[in-house]
């Protein structure tokens, strides 16, 4: 497989975005994106795990037999998730409490196992690392976007409780976009997550469609310059 770095970056962030195109890892995605800070927390944790697992899997890819492949990958991912969990307990305990079960559940995030299986197990370390990083970033971006939308509509703020993640210094980061906002609970509740994700996917498809159309528009003049070839009559 000869995938260029450029391609990997574009795939991870856009063309093959785990959340918007593959629709993987939706459970944590929908569950914890009610605020930006929660979204960043889970996104960073996932980013760490997917990068780490891609690296580890790539390193051992020539040494595990096929039959042992999946258990090995799962072990690696589980170990990394446990590390992440411990780190969060140490440095962002409040956030760890808020995200709760969804941190250990990163193990079951199909996007991570999917990348390990589909990419890291067939590519050398640098590429696998880059892919993990980009997949994680793509996931993080969607989480933050969705979290932002839901927090904005639901509470009228952005980055509320940033200190949970970034320490006391971040306490003042909260942006109150609509002062005196009456909370629109629907956005914060699960239906809001579904509606929001649906809208983001629709937007992505719309942009893709637009890009395609533009490309086609760029290509047509070349074709219209062709001379018409003889299409009637018999050929021998």
């Amino acid at each position: 497989m000869s995938t260029g770095a450029n391609q990997i970056i574009r795939d991870g962030l856009w063309h093959n975005n785990p959340a918007l195109v593959q629709l993987l890892g939706l459970c944590p995605l929908l569950a914890v994106t009610n605020t930006v800070v929660n979204a960043i927390g889970l996104g960073l944790a996932t980013l760490m795990v997917v990068t780490g697992s891609n690296m580890a899997v790539s390193l051992i890819r020539n040494r595990v037999t096929d039959s042992m492949r999946l258990p090995a990958f799962v072990m690696i991912i589980a170990a990394l998730v446990t590390c992440t969990e411990l780190i969060m307990q140490a440095y962002a305990y409040r956030l760890y409490q808020i995200l709760g079960i969804f941190i250990p559940l990163i193990v079951t995030n199909c996007a991570i196992l999917g990348r390990a299986e589909a990419f890291a197990s067939r590519n050398p370390l640098p590429k696998a690392t880059l892919d993990g990083l980009m997949t994680g970033l793509g996931f993080l971006a969607v989480l933050v976007l969705l979290g932002g939308m839901r927090e904005l509509v639901g509470y009228g703020t952005l980055l509320a409780d940033a200190h949970l993640l970034f320490g006391e210094a971040a306490r003042g980061w909260t942006l109150t976009v609509f002062p005196d906002y009456r909370q629109a609970l629907i956005a914060v509740l699960p239906p809001g997550a579904f509606i929001g994700l649906g809208l983001i996917i629709a937007l992505r498809n719309r942009i893709d469609h637009h890009i395609q159309q533009q490309q086609q528009a760029r290509q047509t003049p070349v074709e219209s310059g062709h001379k018409r070839v003889r299409v009637t009559g018999t050929f021998s």
Binding site: R182, Q183, A184, L185, I186, A187, L189, P191
Partner: peptide, 9 residues
């Protein structure tokens, strides 16, 4: 949607 969002009102 509004019932869930604005239960009080």
């Amino acid at each position: 949607l509004v019932l869930v969002s604005f239960p009080e009102a």
